[in-house]
Design a protein around this nucleic acid. Structure first.
Lengths: 232, 232
DNA sequence: ACCTCTTGTCACAGGTTCGTCACAGGGTTA
DNA sequence: TAACCCTGTGACGAACCTGTGACAAGAGGT
C-alpha cells in the first residue's frame, strides 16, 4: 500500500511520513501543488493524505483545488488534514471529494486508524450498494441501512451515532481504539467527551446483546479504550 | 450501460463524467452540437445527459434543438441539466422530448439516482406505453395512468404528487432517499419542505394501505429519509 | 353557487435519541 | 484501610422526529 503525503509544513510532513511508514506503508511526500500532481501520476498511490491549508497563491493550487482535481480523475481515497476549529474547511473538503479528515494536532495512532479505515472501506464498500455489509464473527452490520443481524437471527436498527461507532470499531477490528480517537471519530468537530462515549458504548452493547462482563464483540481495555474483538 | 455527457462547461462535464463512471457506467463526452450528434451516432449511448444551456448561436444548435432532433429519431432517454431558477427551460426541455431533468448544482447521489431511475424506466416501461407498469412485491403501479393495484385486488388512482413520490421511491427501491432528495425530486424547482413531504408520505401510505408502524413498502429511516423496501 | 379533490399549514401526541447526573463495584496505590 | 480512577448502571429530561387529525385556500367540474 502506497501513500502520498502532502504538506508544506516540513515538521508535520515528517511526522506523518514517520507514522505511516512505521505502520508498514510505503510513502512519498510533496509540498506544493505542482509536485503533488506530478507525484500522484508517477507514483500512483493507494491513498493521499492532504493538508488542506496548502499555501495556494490562487484558487488554482490550494488544497481544495487539488482535492477536487484529483477526485475528478480518480477515486483514490483522500484524507484531509485540517486545523481544529476550522469546520468550514472540513465541509468544503468533503464536498471537494475527500473521503475523511483528521484534525490537527492528531495522535499517530488516530491517523493510522483513519488510514486503515479508509483503505478498508474502499476495498469492501466499493460503490454505494445498499447491501454492502460488514460481517465479523457472526455479527452482520449494514452501515447504509443501519441495522445489525445477530447470530440468533434477530435484526435491530441502530441510531446514527451507534452506527458510526460500530462502523469505526469494525473497520478497525482487532485494534484498540483510544477514547479520544473514538470520540473524535463519532462526534467529529461537533465535539463529544468520554462520558458520552461510555453511554453510547453501553447502548450499542445492549442492542447487539453483548455482555460487558464477558464481551463477545466490544471489549474494554482499562485506561486505553475499546476494541472490536477478533477471533478469540 | 453507456452514457453520453454533453456540456460546454469543462468543469461540469468532468464532474458528471467522474460521477457516472464511479457508479459503474461507461461514458464519453461532447461539448457542442456537432460533436454531440456525431458521438450519438457512433457511440450509440443508452442515455444522454444534456446541458440545456449549450451556447447555440442559432436555434438550430442549442440544447433544445439537439434534444428535439435526437428525440425524433430515437427514444434514447435524455436527462437535462438546467440551472436552478430557469423553470421555463425545464418545461421547454420536457416538451422537446427530454425524460427528466436535474437542477444545477446537483449532488452526485442525486444525479446517479436519476440516471438509474431513467434507465430502469426505459428498461421496464419499454417505450412510453400507457400500460407500462412498475411492480414490486405485489404492488403494481402505473406511472402514466397514475393508479396502483394492491394485493387485495383494489385499484386506486394517485394524485400527481403522490405519483411522483411513489415512482421515485420504486425506481430506487432498496436505497434510502434522503428528505432533501425526495423533496427536490417531487417538488423540483418550485420548492417544497420536509413537512410537505411528511404529509405526502402519509397520504400515499394511506392509499396503498401501508401501516406506518409496520411498513410493508415505505419505510422510514429516522434522521435520514425514506426507502421503498425490498424483500428483507 | 355548490361540491369535490388536491395540497399546504398548523397543532398535538407519542416515541426515540442522546446528553447529563448520581451511584456502585473493582482495581490500584499510598 | 482509605483515596482515587476507571468502568458499568440506572434514571431523568430536553430536543428532536414522526405520525395524526383538522382546517383552509385554490382549482376544477356540475
Amino acid at each position: 500500500m502506497k501513500i502520498l503525503v502532502v504538506d508544506d509544513d516540513r515538521v508535520v510532513a515528517d511526522l506523518v511520513m514517520f507514522t505511516v511508514r512505521r505502520a508498514g506503508y510505503e510513502a512519498v511526500m510533496a509540498s506544493d501543488a505542482v509536485s503533488t500532481l506530478r507525484r500522484w501520476q508517477e507514483y500512483q498511490p493507494d491513498l493521499i493524505i492532504l493538508d488542506i491549508n496548502l499555501p495556494g497563491t490562487t484558487q488554482l493550487n490550494d488544497g481544495f483545488a487539488i482535492c477536487q482535481y484529483i477526485r475528478r480523475q480518480s477515486d483514490v481515497p483522500i484524507i484531509l488534514l485540517t486545523v481544529r476549529g476550522e469546520e468550514n474547511d472540513i465541509v468544503r473538503g468533503l464536498e471537494a471529494g475527500a473521503d475523511d479528515y483528521v484534525l490537527k494536532p492528531f495522535s499517530p495512532r488516530q491517523l493510522i486508524a483513519r488510514v486503515q479505515a479508509v483503505l478498508r472501506r474502499g476495498r469492501t464498500a466499493e460503490g454505494s450498494h445498499p447491501s454492502a455489509k460488514l460481517s465479523i464473527d457472526g455479527l452482520e452490520f449494514n452501515p447504509k441501512l443501519r441495522y445489525v443481524s445477530l447470530t440468533n437471527g434477530e435484526t435491530k436498527t441502530l441510531t446514527s451515532l451507534e452506527s458510526r461507532l460500530l462502523e469505526y470499531l469494525m473497520l478497525n477490528a482487532g485494534h484498540i481504539l483510544t477514547t479520544n480517537d473514538l470520540v473524535s471519530d463519532v462526534w467529529g468537530a461537533s465535539g463529544g467527551n468520554s462520558e458520552m462515549l461510555r453511554q453510547l458504548v453501553r447502548r450499542l452493547r445492549s442492542k447487539i446483546e453483548d455482555d460487558p462482563t464477558k464481551p463477545f464483540y466490544i471489549q474494554n481495555f482499562p485506561g486505553l479504550g475499546y476494541a472490536f474483538r477478533l477471533k478469540r
